[in-house]
């Protein structure tokens, strides 16, 4: 997955995806359709009304853990990052997590293991409720604050440091569920089970990246704006 390479505007979009197919998740949250032919990253972004520098910052951070260097921060547009994060929230809450739920339920609905299935689904549903709360807070408190700040209309009673201090690791419970299924599940497993377990792996990693983006790209950017 990790080619330790920094992508730039003139690199081909198809090359980015072929070399790092996990970037498909990022593309889907930016709303970039396939069929980019030989177009460069910059061309594809412009065609879809996406700020290229934001796209590259997200991609390079995902791939290299590359983070808020001063040069990157200077060119980033807070609203664009917020837009991407908002799309990501919708993606996780409306698509990814429900889709895993459906397939998880199918995979563990073994008649002899009914109780286990109930316990697993309870855990999963509680987890999703937590994620929803976490993301709703950002949608209802953090993002409006950032939009107001950019327009110079932010009040004095909120600061991004409040968010920074209480922002918790969103994926850790999902990782725990993953490990429990991996190590202790005794029911019948097959293709469906392994496929959904694989999804849980990638989703947890995706959520971790999502969180890191907020901690590493968004927070420093807003802190600078507050000064």
């Amino acid at each position: 997955m990790n080619t330790k390479m920094k992508y730039a505007e003139n690199d081909k979009m198809s090359a980015l995806v072929c070399q790092n197919y996990y970037m498909l998740f990022v593309l889907s949250r930016f709303g970039i359709p396939m069929g980019f032919g030989e177009s460069s990253i910059g061309e594809v972004c412009r065609r879809n009304g996406i700020d290229t520098r934001t796209f590259l910052a997200v991609v390079n951070m995902n791939l290299n853990g590359e983070t808020g260097s001063k040069e990157i921060e200077k060119v980033l547009i807070p609203e664009e990052i917020v837009r991407y994060l908002h799309n990501s929230h919708e993606y996780f809450l409306d698509y990814r997590l429900p889709s895993i739920r459906t397939r998880l339920l199918d995979a563990i609905s073994d008649k002899d293991q009914h109780d286990v299935a109930v316990a697993v689904m309870r855990f999963y549903d509680d987890y999703v409720a937590e994620v929803k709360k976490h993301m709703q807070y950002e949608e209802q408190t953090v993002f409006p604050y950032i939009r107001a700040l950019v327009q110079g209309k932010a009040g004095k009673d909120y600061h991004i440091s409040i968010f920074r201090k209480q922002h918790n690791q969103i994926e850790s419970q999902l990782t725990e569920l993953r490990d429990i299924l991996l190590k202790y599940y005794t029911g019948k497993t097959g293709h469906d089970f392994n496929a959904v377990l694989f999804d849980i792996f990638t989703c947890a990693e995706d959520l971790r990246q999502h969180n890191a983006l907020e901690d590493v790209l968004l927070v420093p950017l807003i802190e600078r704006l507050e000064k």
Partner: peptide
């Protein structure tokens, strides 16, 4: 919550004995 799943998988408790709600 994680321990609950473990306990049920290993038959240390029955589902009715644990706290919580929600079915399938």
């Amino acid at each position: 919550a994680g321990l609950t799943i473990y306990a049920i998988m290993n038959k240390l408790v029955k589902l009715e004995e644990v706290k919580g709600k929600g079915g399938l």
